[in-house]
Structures are given as C-alpha cells and as structure tokens.
Nucleic acid binder design. Sequence first.
DNA 1: CCACAAACAGGCAAGCCTGCCTGTTCGCGC
DNA 2: GCGCGAACAGGCAGGCTTGCCTGTTTGTGG
Lengths: 206, 206
Amino acid sequence: MPQAERAGAMRARLLDATIGCVAELGYGGASTNDIVRRARVSRGALAHHFPTKADLVSAAAQRLLESKVDEFRARFGAIAPDRRTPAEGLGVLWSFYADTGGLVLLELMVAARHNPELAEVLAPMPDRIAEVTAEVFTEFFPDLADRPFLSEALRGVHALFSGLALNALPDGDPAGRGAEVRAFVKLLVSAAPHLHDAAFLIPDPA
Amino acid sequence: MPQAERAGAMRARLLDATIGCVAELGYGGASTNDIVRRARVSRGALAHHFPTKADLVSAAAQRLLESKVDEFRARFGAIAPDRRTPAEGLGVLWSFYADTGGLVLLELMVAARHNPELAEVLAPMPDRIAEVTAEVFTEFFPDLADRPFLSEALRGVHALFSGLALNALPDGDPAGRGAEVRAFVKLLVSAAPHLHDAAFLIPDPA
DNA sequence: CCACAAACAGGCAAGCCTGCCTGTTCGCGC
DNA sequence: GCGCGAACAGGCAGGCTTGCCTGTTTGTGG
C-alpha cells in the first residue's frame, strides 16, 4: 500500500475513533488512550499524525461537520420528488441534530468555549449550515426562494432544533418532549407558503 | 454563629464557587481544587458537605436553576406595566440564556449526558421553565392565555434561544449572528396577537 | 460542666492523562 | 540495491484529580 494512502487511512481511522469516543464517552471522557484503543493504533502513530489532542479533535470536528453536510444533501435529495415539501424537509433537518453526529457536534460546540483551536473550526459552522440549507432550499423550491425573512427563518429552525436536541439530552430520549414543538413548527412551515405577503406581520400601530 | 447557619453559608459558598468555576473554566476544567480555592474553603470541608463531585455539581445545578427561575420572574415583573408586551418579554427570555448562568446551564446540560445524577436534576428543567414561562405569560396576558399552540410556541422560543446561545458559543460573542433571527422572532410574536384565528394555518388541501 | 457529634483543616496515595522520547519497520527516490 | 525519511510501536515521566484518612476546633444537649 502506498504511503499516502496508508497515512490517509490511518488518519481517517483516528478521526472516526475520536468521533466515536466523544459520542460514547463525551468530550470530557474521551482520552487519547481510549481513542488509540478504539482505532487499534499505537500511541506513537497518534502523536505522529496529531501532535496534540487539540489538533486531533479539531480535525475530527472538521471531518464530522463536512460529513454531516454531505449527509444532509443526500438525505434531502433522497426524498421522492413528489413529496418534496418544505415541511418534509423539516424531518431531514431534524435528523441532522437528532442522530449521534449531532450529539457530538453539540458536545464539541460547548467544548469549543475553552478550546480556541476547536472554536476556530466550529465558529463558521452555523453560517456554513445555513448556507447549505438555503442553497438546497432554493434549489428545490425556487418559487419560494425570495420569501421575506427566509434566511432568518432557516437559521431559526436550525437554532430551534439544536435547542430541542440539547433539551432532550438529559432525559436520554433523543426525541424528548420536543415532538409537539416540532409538529407545531411543521404546521407553521406548511402554512407559510400560503401567506403570499408578509406585510400583515407588521403589527398594527393602532 | 449557630451550626445550621454556618453550614448553610458554607454550602452556599461552595455552590456559588462551583458555578463560578464552571462559568470560567468550563465543566471539564473545573476541578475540586479550583472550587475550594475560589470558595476559600479546605478540601475537608468540601468532602464533608459533598462527599462526591457529582453531589456538588448536582446541588449547584439545582441552585442555579432555581436562582435563574426567580431571576426570570423578577426581570419580567420589572418591566414597566405599560410596556409589557409579549415581544418585550422575548428580551427577558433571551437574557435567560445570554448571560453567564445560561452558559453554565448549557454546559451542565451536555455534561448531564454522562452524569446520571446531574441528568436527574436537569431533566425536568425544560418542563419547569416552560411551566414558569406559561404561568408568567398567562398572568400578564390573560386575554392571550388560551391561544392555540401557546405551550408549543413558548417551548419553541425557549429551544430556539438555547440553540442561538449554543451557536454563538464558539465565536465568543454571546449575541453572535443570532440578532437577526431574534428580530424575526420578535416580529412573529408581535404579529401573533393580531391573528385571531389559527385556522388559516391549516394548509389548503387543494 | 462534660461528652459527643458535627464542622472543618490539611495531607496522602492511587489512578489517569498528556506529551515526549527512543527504537523499529516500511516505502520511496536515486 | 541503497540511503533516507516518513510511518509506526511502545514505554516513561511529570502533573493533576479525586477520594479518603487523620487530626483539631466548635457548637449542642444532657
């Protein structure tokens, strides 16, 4: 096996093991020992590719973020064309936060507060996700592309979902008691296309 | 000083120091050494009142949660009566998440995933907050008390705000790029009372 | 007034984690 | 075929953390 490929595979294994350990043990509980054990790699190899732990987790965060973005595109594209409604898209968005990867992202997010290197990687995340979401949205629903407050609404939905995932964290159940809220949002989104003018939203000064 | 009072004060100092350390160093970075140093207390005293670290942080979480609930009530009541609109209330809600205490709550939230004792304390939190919020809301806006989806909307706003706070975490700025989203939500909330019937929300089957 | 228990002080030991260091194998270019 | 450097293996040391353990003071009830 050529050198480059070997190193790449090793890096990938290390990164995946890191993500797995964070998912399983939490950011605080994931030690480099656990990681090398899970990846079936020696400590030396880890040190060779990622001199410091911050390098490792930063790279893992990057990998996870990109993989999830791709996954998001794929899942959205996988919806049957005749069922591609914004409301249906919400399910895809939710899956972005509800699964294991989303959990890890959450954990890394708060860890970033005391890890500048991680913060640097994760800071552009909300914008990146919003960007991709908007991109996909305007691709599949071109007639809704220039709705007022579209960007704000999309970002809001993302924030809402990450908040729901967060709140559901302590009681183990990934769905938590957020199901009703999600249903409500779905209702709202279903209705939104029928509001052809947002002017009425401006409260009556009277 | 009587015994009970002394012990109470000690407990309070320990708990406050714990919250302070978590705020400053993060959950993972807050060691019992830091805590006793900050509280000006000996290790023995800590061990006496909180045999294990989990006991300590659980108690601290409890204290923080209750203090924030009280603070929420107080801040809401402090709004000038003639300015008490739901939209104005959003500011209070946001302050709940934007300040230091909210940050700590976020951090403890994700920490709870691998700390059953903490989880037990924090699990009822979303419900508790929703409850208090609904209570305050119906007290100040009795005519809006039985709006459809009120509970869902309130819970949604909370989730949204916690998500915004979370997303703003990596870039240090507590406000982050969430200001536009909050403005949008404010607009939505301002408009909501003018929608006297939610029936139109049901999408036209045609 | 005394005995007792709670409250508090400080130190000790075991365990773990991270970073580095030396040694070995493998692939690549000449 | 050979030398060189990257890739990898495994162990060592320093530092830190947590929980416990012994010793001392202080308040309380009989």
